[in-house]
Write a protein that binds this DNA or RNA. Sequence first.
DNA 1: TCATAACCTGAAGATTCATTCAGATTATAT
DNA 2: ATATAATCTGAATGAATCTTCAGGTTATGA
Lengths: 198, 198
Amino acid sequence: MDAVKIPTTRNGKATFQLIIDTTLDLFYKQGYHNTTIANITETAGIGAGTFYLYFPNKLMLYKHILKLLQHDIRRTIAAKVSTVEGRYNKEKEGIKTFIEYAIKYPHSYNIIWESLYIDKNLFIEYYDGFAKRYEIGLKQSILDGEMHDVDTELVSYILMGVSNFIGLKVLLNLGTNNNDVEKIVDQVMSIIKTGIFK
Amino acid sequence: MDAVKIPTTRNGKATFQLIIDTTLDLFYKQGYHNTTIANITETAGIGAGTFYLYFPNKLMLYKHILKLLQHDIRRTIAAKVSTVEGRYNKEKEGIKTFIEYAIKYPHSYNIIWESLYIDKNLFIEYYDGFAKRYEIGLKQSILDGEMHDVDTELVSYILMGVSNFIGLKVLLNLGTNNNDVEKIVDQVMSIIKTGIFK
DNA sequence: TCATAACCTGAAGATTCATTCAGATTATAT
DNA sequence: ATATAATCTGAATGAATCTTCAGGTTATGA
């Protein structure tokens, strides 16, 4: 068996969820590679064998968690973006939501990035998928005349790079100005809008 | 002993270097966590005990390598940037050199990023240091009237984010347009210069 | 040349960790 | 009520890996 086994009863579901919650916390604190199965089961207060009732190994558990997080982060951004009009506002809302998300759920941010060092293909799938979605909106904005005729693929990577590094900065508390997300986002947007050179 | 022991004789230096070269390759191909000491010594064709003659453990070897790479990448960029005049040209040269470096030495790029999941402080030190250097140049450009009065800390993170994600894109061969670095850099610069919105 | 320090080896012990499994408990549907 | 499936346990096995060390080789400087 190499797939995740979904429990059917109430007790089973609770244990399943307990494993996921415990693991989220441990992966965040210690990283994927430094977290052992024994580590997870002991912290969760369950028998070692119970783990294997639901997950064939640590990697499958990671993949399962990654999928959950990806859905959640995308859903959150999509929901927020849909509440505003115009590409500029949508872009701003997207970046803001992403950074807020990174601050609110540093676990997620951390675990998604770690995929690069667990299974490179997971990472590629994630960011390539993200970029492709981005491009759809960008292309529309160009058609609408809201945006210059840029290379949408490149711009989607640029925007991901910007969001991710600002997220990283805020998350790791690098530098000094981390207090006010709204303010940070405003500045980022103004730079994206008009460029930095005279 | 918890430090790296530098060899004194010619043979010693050769073995030391052999360990580093072998490890660079293995870390790149398999990642830090999937690379064992036995793995390194066998590939290098030396006895297991020889490793411990120079490095107390894998982490110290990693730190040593990371330091070497950081110096090299910074030196390379600084050298290139100093050959051109004006902040815009310097910025362009910096981004171009960074991306070229990532393509030429994917090992380095990969190993530096991995620090986030080996020892978070190493990662923080690296990028915070990089940002601080960046800021010096940016501040000067503002004084010279070449650049808008932006938040230099924020802009340095934005520029790092952009370079890193473009590097990532090219490296992982994401998307389609990866052939011509010069062309990519030109587009990136034009976006940074004038912004993306009308 | 030869004493000495540096260098090198790989088998062996120690440790950590993943995974199994026989046996026990619990929930649920009929 | 009870048969059945689902759930749970944790000691035990075994595989992978780190690290040491006693003994051997090589290079170098006096």
